[in-house]
Design a protein around this nucleic acid. Structure first.
Lengths: 366, 366
DNA sequence: CGATGGATTGAAAGCGCATTCATCGTACGC
DNA sequence: GCGTACGATGAATGCGCTTTCAATCCATCG
């Protein structure tokens, strides 16, 4: 009745369970004839090795995990509404994809779990118990929990600043937010001669957003321009908010800047549509730039100048780090910063899309 | 050295391992004082229950799986290229998201595995051994393998026609491709008075594409128009191919149709850009419609009329089916067809976006 | 005051497979 | 021909946890 086990197969094939196991784990160590008999029996019985038993016996699961924050939207098939959290979703989707692929290459499967902030609890512990190692999107899991778990299991932190104090032994991957925004802003200032730029940022607790803003500041510093102390607007990273942010800027009465740099593409896209509605010409009246490099940015009019971050690679690097730590538990914690590239399209005043200027910013520090 | 186990915790807390286990499985059956002691010990030791051991002992993993085809693109961060397989990726992403959420609601984690067609082999067996049940995107896994595995484990087939013969005991979820395309085409014919329509379809072995084409045919039949025998063009479901498909249609010399129905949105979007380039006005000179309801469709100009299919719900339904079968292994196999809705936007000639006409097509047949 | 029964806790038996060690052949070498 | 060595296979043990089943404990009841 229940699923067939090694014992059943062994019986049917007239061998011991050790041999059955060997047929799957080390086929070459079993004589061809015997092997065939076992495989045939397995086929006949519909035998599928139990991952649990195997994992228990060999004390490793061959599964890697990923914990990411749940996207807000509770259920709603979202009729035709504003894809509010599309950005976030897209982001984790890409990481999932990157991890899945890299994991498979290394012979691992991928277990994913979105942790809803208010969740029952210890969802991490749940995945932690089932995998050989896992990645966590920054700010998804409470520090204390991670602290405990990471003592027993490789964990890599994704996107977000490198952790300090209790978690500084974790491997870590992020993209060059600072360098990217610096390069982008430098381009706007140096190549387009825009000296008054506004910055629309995210909440202060978004490490990515803050790093980007610092890059924005640095470009001003470098150019000898007055350094803005804080983003002109802080808001959520959605299209709707981007739309509203420009509205605020324009209605604010203050002098119109020469360009607006948004902390991400979603906002920038929203802003473009609002600007279009108001008859503000981009880039003539106002240059616009985003950050992320989402596909949509190429399709809007004018095409969006932005900084592309390799989200999928983020996932791949995470897997690399996990695998390498699985091989050597004691190596020094490593922090990787992935390079980003400025994509010059029309929204900043560049002719017509399509010249990506790779901006070397790959750093490996220990 | 190695990770702490129940024994360690039990020792530290001065209780038996049975009690430790109970603290996690049935907290109420342990006196509060004892429970605290155990929890404290666990915390101190950094104890995380082994999913494998637990699964083995309780013979269930509390994990659900999903097998989907790998998206072509091997590595390439795809500089700024044509997101060729974006459609497919988007598709599986949505399903993953839907399943993840539903699974979590039911207390399951989700294991995902993209099977590369040429892969080493039996990737399914691999996931099958680790989960309590799983979903398979149509045409991802060889029939024989599924046949064997599905004898031992709940499997639901996603998107694609219902399987026959050896696999007809599987649960199955798909969307109303036929009904959706029928409704859409009916709209073009009846409401916009377009009598000559072209259809750009996919390869013949795409069950979805074929079903859509049959819906397209049915609308002609219903309207008393000549029924096209085959799609005017068959090609891959990408933007680039869509672009080329219209080019073919226009350059073909034949009389220009009043409208073109594409088997999916990606192609339609590509076509729109090509038409725009050629100065063909949409919808005045040529109406255009897609299928899928991808977000991008709302953003192109003119906004794309299409049929929205609830991809995320596909994943949710799959989980429902799996869970319910886990509860009752013997219930009749069920086939669910999810309703789709025609989204009328500008590309077909409808005023301006935003009226979704839900098209009842939900059917549950056994 | 002893009996009775529910609440707790412990002892022990697996769950299905990997793996070490011992055993059994058999091809070779002398 | 017989000892030797290596390849193939079997027996047995344990991975870490769940789950009866039985043993205790203690409060309540007669």
């Amino acid at each position: 009745m229940s699923a067939p086990t090694v014992y059943d197969v062994a019986g049917q094939a007239g061998v011991s369970i050790a041999t059955v196991s060997r047929v799957y784990r080390a086929p070459d160590s079993v004589r061809a004839g015997t092997r065939e008999r076992v495989l045939e029996a397995a086929r006949e019985l519909g035998y599928v090795p139990s991952g649990n038993a195997r994992g228990l016996a060999s004390r490793n699961t061959r599964v890697l995990g990923l914990c990411f924050p749940d996207y807000a939207d509770p259920d709603a098939e979202d009729p035709d509404g504003d894809y509010g959290d599309a950005e976030l979703m897209l982001y984790s989707d890409e990481i999932i994809r990157g991890m899945e692929r890299a994991a498979r290459r290394h012979g691992y499967a991928l277990l994913i779990a979105a942790s809803l902030s208010e969740g029952p609890k210890s969802l991490v512990a749940d995945v932690a118990g089932r995998v050989d190692g896992f990645a966590v999107l920054a700010r998804t899991v409470p520090t204390e929990e991670l602290e405990v778990i990471s003592r027993r299991l490789p964990v890599v932190m994704l996107a977000g600043p490198r952790e300090d104090a209790p978690l500084d032994h974790l491997d870590h991957v992020e993209v060059a937010n600072f360098d990217g925004e610096l390069a982008l802003t430098r381009h706007l200032i140096a190549d387009h001669g825009i000296t008054r730029l506004a910055f629309v940022g995210s909440a202060e607790d978004s490490p990515d957003g803050e790093a980007r803003f610092r890059g924005f500041q640095a470009a001003h510093l470098e150019a000898g321009l007055p350094v803005p102390e804080r983003p002109d607007v802080r808001t959520r990273l959605t299209q709707a908010e981007g739309r509203q942010a420009v509205a605020e800027l324009l209605d604010g009465g203050a002098e119109l800047p020469g360009g607006v740099v948004f902390a991400n593409d979603q906002m920038a896209v929203g802003a473009l549509s609002e600007l279009n509605r108001r008859g503000v010409r981009v880039p003539e009246d106002l240059a616009v730039a985003g950050f992320d490099g989402i596909p949509l940015g190429r399709l809007v009019t004018p095409a969006l100048t932005t900084v592309r971050q390799p989200m999928r690679r983020l996932g791949e690097e995470a897997v690399d780090l996990l695998v390498s730590r699985l091989e050597d538990r004691d190596r020094e914690p490593e922090s990787r910063v992935l390079p980003v590239s400025v994509i010059r399209r029309s929204s900043c005043g560049c002719a017509n899309g399509h010249d990506a200027v790779p901006d070397a910013a790959s750093v490996t520090q220990s």
